[in-house]
Each structure stands twice: as C-alpha cells, then as structure tokens.
Computed example of a mutant assay.
Amino acid sequence: MRADVNGLSWRKSPHSNGEGGECVEVSDDLPGLVPVRDTKLAGAGPVLVFPAAAWAPFIRAVKGRA
C-alpha cells in the first residue's frame, strides 16, 4: 500500500523506555491507514502502511486480548 508519509506527526508507545530500545512509531494523520516506522531509523528508513482495520486486531493480539 502506498501513501504520502512526508510531514506526518509520529508517536511512540507510552510504554517505551526512552533508552533507544526496540520501539516503533505510528502516525494518526492518515484516516483509515496506520503508517509505522522504526524509531531508530526515523526519517531514514522505510515506512510500512497498514489498513486501520488490520492494525486494530494486531494491537489486540499483542496486548493479549485477541
């Protein structure tokens, strides 16, 4: 899926420890889509874009509420 990800606002999980660990950032700026990127590569690495309908079940599964 392709989307223009230039100029998006990004956020990390509040559970991120801030020590440069294994974190991802997501953006809420594209309705119906969830862009995801590696925090360490912010701006320099790839951005994966998922349909919001697929992202929600993924997050529920990660949280153990699938």
Rank of each mutant, 00 (worst) to 15 (best):
L33D: 05
V24T: 04
G18K: 12
P35Y: 00
P31C: 10
G32Q: 01
V34L: 08
E25K: 15
D29Q: 06
W10L: 02
E19N: 13
L48E: 03
D38V: 07
L33Y: 01
L30N: 08
G7S: 12
G32K: 06
V62P: 12
D38N: 08
M1P: 15
K63G: 09
V26Y: 04
F50A: 10
A66M: 07
G43S: 09
D38T: 10
N17T: 03
P57F: 03
L30P: 00
P35G: 05
E19M: 11
G20I: 09
R11P: 01
V36Y: 11
M1W: 09
W10M: 02
S9P: 03
I59P: 14
A54D: 02
V36C: 11
L33P: 01
E25R: 05
I59F: 07
L48H: 01
K12H: 13
N17P: 00
G7P: 02
S27G: 00
A53M: 02
A56S: 04
E19K: 11
P31Q: 05
E25T: 03
A54W: 11
P31V: 15
R37S: 03
R11Q: 14
V26I: 10
L8P: 12
L41Y: 05
K12M: 07
V5E: 01
P57R: 13
G45T: 11
L33S: 13
G18W: 03
F58T: 07
V24E: 01
D38I: 00
W55K: 09
F50E: 02
A42G: 09
K12V: 05
W55R: 04
G64L: 07
R2H: 14
R65L: 13
E19R: 06
A3Y: 10
R65M: 06
N17M: 09
G64I: 09
G45I: 05
G43P: 08
N17I: 01
E25Y: 10
E22R: 05
A61Y: 07
W55A: 04
E25F: 02
G32V: 05
V49K: 02
V26S: 12
W10K: 04
A52G: 10
R65D: 15
L33T: 03
M1V: 11
G7T: 09
V26T: 09
N6A: 08
R65F: 10
K40V: 00
W55M: 13
G21P: 04
S9M: 05
L8Q: 06
K12P: 14
D4A: 02
R11W: 14
D4T: 06
A61R: 11
S13Y: 03
K63P: 01
R60A: 02
L48N: 00
V49D: 06
L8D: 01
A42M: 08
G18N: 01
G21T: 14
K40W: 15
G32I: 11
V49A: 08
H15F: 09
G64T: 10
L48Y: 07
P57H: 00
D38G: 00
S16F: 02
S16G: 01
R60Q: 12
D29V: 13
P46E: 14
A52D: 03
A44V: 14
V47A: 04
A61D: 04
E25I: 11
K63W: 04
V49R: 13
R60M: 14
V26K: 02
L33E: 11
R60S: 08
A42D: 04
R60N: 12
L48I: 11
V47M: 06
L33K: 08
D4I: 00
A66I: 11
A44N: 08
V62H: 09
L48Q: 15
V49H: 02
V36W: 09
P51E: 13
